[in-house]
């Protein structure tokens, strides 16, 4: 039981990271990116391919995947999504929905339907706490990466001019322009950052678990659940939501865990749609 709770908590950091990019885009820019799960999987494939090609540690692939995903996000937002966001919330929602299945089937064509997994040296290393309780090093590492990214993102959004200009623009476009923000690029930068977090998330999901070209929508729903539980745009909320989801999956077992977490989510949506941490 204690062992399972440890797993659940460690999963939480990973799930929270999967959610944070989507949460930021919704909470701050007002865009629901239904392709966020596919972008996570795309980044995982990128990492996996680079890992094999270069023979390096999976962690080093971030040097390439993070900037690549940032650029993808920036261009996507700049040329397509900014344009459709002007045509109402539904249009943008459906465009990202279209993107999600273009990406999914594109990945199926390129990478086949087989599962992949990235392996590191300490794949099955454990820190022994007692006879029946261990802390798996890999899960601990990915969880810490997740927490670290979320903390860095939080500091970035609240302490830097770029981060604040994103928040300011979402509050009042005209006023943001008047203080000197070139608002044309702000949402594109935000999307770039969101996909950069997806790049890290792809790595942290692709090391402990196998992934498929079709895994994206599953992670999207987890990300959505984390965001709903924690409240949109809330960083601490995302961590707590992630842990709740992690515990539900571990304690529910492999067959019913997902079902239980979906039901928790639906009940939550019905009773408290604003999340745990919003008044």
């Amino acid at each position: 039981m204690i062992q399972q709770i440890i797993y659940g908590i460690l999963y939480g950091g990973v799930f929270a990271l999967a959610a944070i990019g989507m949460s930021m885009m919704f909470g701050i820019v007002g865009l629901t990116n239904l392709a966020h799960g596919e972008f996570i999987i795309l980044a995982a494939f990128l990492s996996s391919v680079l890992c094999t090609a270069l023979g390096c540690s999976p962690f080093l692939t971030l040097i390439i995947t993070v900037p690549v995903m940032f650029i993808v996000g920036f261009i996507l937002q700049k040329v397509l999504i900014n344009y459709v966001m002007g045509k109402g919330a539904n249009a943008a929602l459906l465009v990202t929905f279209g993107l999600s299945f273009i990406l999914k089937d594109g990945m199926l064509q390129i990478f086949s339907a087989d599962s992949r997994r990235m392996v590191v040296a300490f794949q099955s290393a454990n820190i022994r706490i007692s006879d029946s309780v261990v802390i798996p090093v890999l899960y601990l590492v990915v969880c810490l990466i997740g927490v670290a990214v979320i903390v860095i993102l939080h500091l970035f959004m609240s302490k830097t001019y770029v981060g604040q200009s994103i928040r300011a623009t979402s509050d009042d476009k005209v006023a943001a322009q008047l203080v000197g923000v070139n608002i044309k690029n702000v949402t594109a930068v935000a999307m770039g950052i969101a996909l950069a977090t997806a790049a890290v998330s792809g790595l942290t999901l692709g090391m402990p678990w196998p992934f498929y070209a079709t895994s994206g929508s599953g992670y999207l729903l987890i990300a959505f659940g984390v965001v709903v539980l924690g409240g949109m745009g809330s960083m601490i909320g995302a961590l707590v939501g992630g842990v709740i989801f992690g515990l539900a999956q571990v304690l529910g077992g492999s067959n019913w865990g997902v079902f239980i977490s979906y039901i928790i989510l639906l009940i939550f949506l019905a009773v408290r749609p604003q999340g745990l941490f919003k008044k």
């Binding site: 629901t32 929602l93 599953g218 039901i263 009940i267």
Partner: peptide, 21 residues
Amino acid sequence: FALMRMRGMYFAVATWVAAEA
């Protein structure tokens, strides 16, 4: 009764979650 208080993307994704459940 469970979902209709929600609007927009909340409703959209919630219905999806229900189907996945």
